[in-house]
Design a protein around this nucleic acid. Structure first.
Lengths: 110, 110
DNA sequence: TTGTTTTATCGTTTTTATACGATTAATAAG
DNA sequence: CTTATTAATCGTATAAAAACGATAAAACAA
């Protein structure tokens, strides 16, 4: 049991789910929000704003980066991060292509 | 350790994260996609389409319902589900209000 | 070279999620 | 009343996520 079957779904479904997973924690929403407001930001500034330990923030940043939602590069001993807007545009497109089609129908159950 | 700190973030951040969490699994994306295409659908039809056991699908449906993304009502021994479009509109609004503002800036790191 | 600052990684613990089979509950059909 | 159909729930096993402290690595400063 507990064998994961994610790979049995379509690529589009997997991609959408992966993006959603990346933003499925309030800390990561908060990180993205800070990056959106400041355009770019070093790790330490994010740690100051969040109610989490440095190692935990670093972990969240890593997940966001792995999911492709942010880019990061080192600047001396610091790490500078910014949002990868292309990933957000892709999410919006795929999201709408799956769910927007019938919105005007506004059906109720049965 | 491993104390969860989700409650220390803003309501908006928590709501966005909760919505994202609900769609963070390809099976739930697939369920929503089926519901969007068919407008409404009984549980058994969804089970037929997905590569998962009935109990697992039922679990996913419960999560989607708890998160407010779908509505469901019983029809005899069957259960009929449909998408709650209002929840999707709210997600779109909140999502954009957090992240859309600086898109045109399109900044690169540092 | 030595020390300081900054961030990433490691190891660990606790909690949550995923998945299934088995069972239960409820309705419909005979 | 009995039986079949349908879906939800329970119990359980495994996997993944969240969080922290401690440590390591890298760059800069003294």
């Amino acid at each position: 049991m507990a064998v994961h079957k994610k790979e049995e779904f379509s690529t589009k479904e997997q991609n959408l789910a992966a993006f959603a997973k990346a933003i499925s924690h309030p800390a990561r929403i908060a990180i993205l929000s800070v990056l959106a407001k400041r355009n770019q930001c070093i790790c330490g500034e994010i740690v100051e704003v969040l109610p989490l330990a440095q190692s935990t923030v670093s972990q969240h940043l890593k997940e966001l980066k792995n999911a492709g939602l942010i880019d990061g590069e080192t600047d001396g001993p610091r790490s500078c991060y910014c949002i990868n807007w292309k990933a957000f545009e892709k999410f919006n497109t795929d999201f709408n292509s799956l769910f927007e089609k019938l919105k005007e129908a506004n059906a109720k159950c049965c």
